[in-house]
Design a protein around this nucleic acid. Sequence first.
DNA 1: ACGAATCGAGACATTAGTGTCTCATGCGAG
DNA 2: CTCGCATGAGACACTAATGTCTCGATTCGT
Lengths: 182, 182
Amino acid sequence: MRDTNVSTETHILEAAFAVFSQNPGASLADVAKHAGVGRATLHRHFSGRDDLIVALTLTAARELDEAVEEATKDCQTYTHALEVALGAILPLAARHMFLATEPAANDPRVAEVYANQTRDLAHDIDMAKAEGAFDPHIPTEWIVQAYDNLIYAGWAMVTAGDATPKQAAALAWRTLTQGTAK
Amino acid sequence: MRDTNVSTETHILEAAFAVFSQNPGASLADVAKHAGVGRATLHRHFSGRDDLIVALTLTAARELDEAVEEATKDCQTYTHALEVALGAILPLAARHMFLATEPAANDPRVAEVYANQTRDLAHDIDMAKAEGAFDPHIPTEWIVQAYDNLIYAGWAMVTAGDATPKQAAALAWRTLTQGTAK
DNA sequence: ACGAATCGAGACATTAGTGTCTCATGCGAG
DNA sequence: CTCGCATGAGACACTAATGTCTCGATTCGT
């Protein structure tokens, strides 16, 4: 098998990220056109819309994992790792955020990915709590929610033209840590 | 004209809130069935999906205004009003949040409503800044974003069963004020 | 150069959602 | 009681999206 498969699939996934980010309700024909492939070719690689959304979700999760892994590999503390990870995730939000409103969480693979991400984040936050970054009396679940939603808030700042990704990440981190400190 | 009109429209709007909150992509037939009315009757009151979404948005905005107005009428400071308003808005988030992802912002009435809400919130935050609640060096736009998204985070806590609305509101307010304090 | 595999384009049938229309029913006002 | 109006049910046509299939062209490996 040639790598044309992989390349075509990548093009389709890239187009899907671009198109669905602008309009989550776009048709598969729009995605195919934007990818520069025929509609039939899209169906050769993804059986339907649901399949495509699942693939996008898994791709997004892998991108996030890689970005966070790369950014935090030299971090000495969980606290610093969370800060650096926030800065790495925020610029990717534009590509991934539309997936949050997709009802694709029925797929077991997607559910597993989401569960893993939430679990890992909760673990890191617990460790950072032990390092003194957060008030131990505040529920870890809240810090998880605040982490995710302040990233979203930062991304909104960026798209509104009110901040650079770096500035938005700094604001989000400051608000999170100072807001949940002892 | 009897009040049957108003009653039917109210039933349809209530059903639409309930159905779209669960599944934003639900069909108008689903809404009509849930409202206990015929599909034709729905079309007699709302010309189509867009019209219905606009009506939902305006209804939601009015509900928010009324709830905030009622909750904050005795507040002496802008800071306290923001805190009380947060507690009033959070329980309504379950009804309204699906509208955030609706592409109905093309309608001029909806756009005006959103602009007004954002402007008023920014104004109140500026006043609260003057009262010392927030660090004046932090962009008001950021505090607006953080306010909205921490409400969303609180609502997520509630739906996950990890907090009561009151607890979630307290966490959101604490995180916001402490996180953006001087 | 040859062959296998993939691709783009387009035809086709199917489905879901939508918008309109008609008609019989029910219910309240007068 | 009767009239009028809103309704529920359902038929109908229209549209957009989807999924499948075929065919000719292209491309890559051998």
